[in-house]
């Protein structure tokens, strides 16, 4: 099953490679991994999207907790949570595409953030599934380039990951 694991770790060089190294050394899946500093400059927040049996996920959480640089680990799937990912898509915007792309962007609540003679760049946020759906919905031959951040996640309501 797909799990989103959120963690806080020391904002130190090498911390990211400890996490990445753990996943490759123990043959765990990584679908995506995002990391950035938090409002507390000494801490980084990482979101890892992974998949595996319940036993594998349990091991992943334990192994992450074992890393000396990792301060706190939360499996978002243990409760209700929100997941968001940002995607930038550059699409052909000539002829029939020009109007069509704008319309599709609107339907998916995307925003056109760069306009050129022959292309648009559309910014979209949502769950990974929503971004996939957008790419499915538009003419594949019109896609020039995509870049996605990978998922970030946060617990709903009182679920807070903080020191």
């Amino acid at each position: 099953m797909r799990h989103i694991i959120s963690l806080l770790m020391e904002n130190e060089s090498g911390a990211l490679s400890r996490v990445a190294g753990l996943f490759s050394a123990r043959a765990y899946n990584i679908e995506s991994l995002t990391v950035a500093p938090t409002e507390d400059a000494t801490l980084s927040r990482m979101t890892i999207v992974t998949s595996g049996s319940e036993e594998v996920i349990e091991q992943i959480i334990k192994q992450l907790n074992k890393l000396v640089d990792v301060v706190k680990v939360l499996d978002l799937n243990d409760g209700r949570f929100i997941e968001r990912e940002l995607m930038l898509v550059k699409v052909k915007a000539t002829g029939v595409h020009r109007e069509e792309m704008k319309r599709m962007g609107d339907i998916f609540r995307g925003r056109i953030i760069d306009v050129a003679d022959a292309s648009y760049t559309i910014e979209l946020t949502g769950s990974g599934a929503k971004l996939d759906a957008f790419l499915e919905a538009i003419d594949k031959t019109a896609i020039l380039e995509t870049v996605r951040t990978g998922a970030s996640g946060i617990g709903r309501g009182d679920r807070i990951l903080k020191l």
Binding site: E55, E58, Q59, K62, Q63, N65, K66
Partner: peptide, 11 residues
């Protein structure tokens, strides 16, 4: 003493 040793190979 190591939680990751527990239920790693045998539940």
């Amino acid at each position: 003493v190591d939680p990751s040793s527990i239920s790693k190979r045998v539940k």
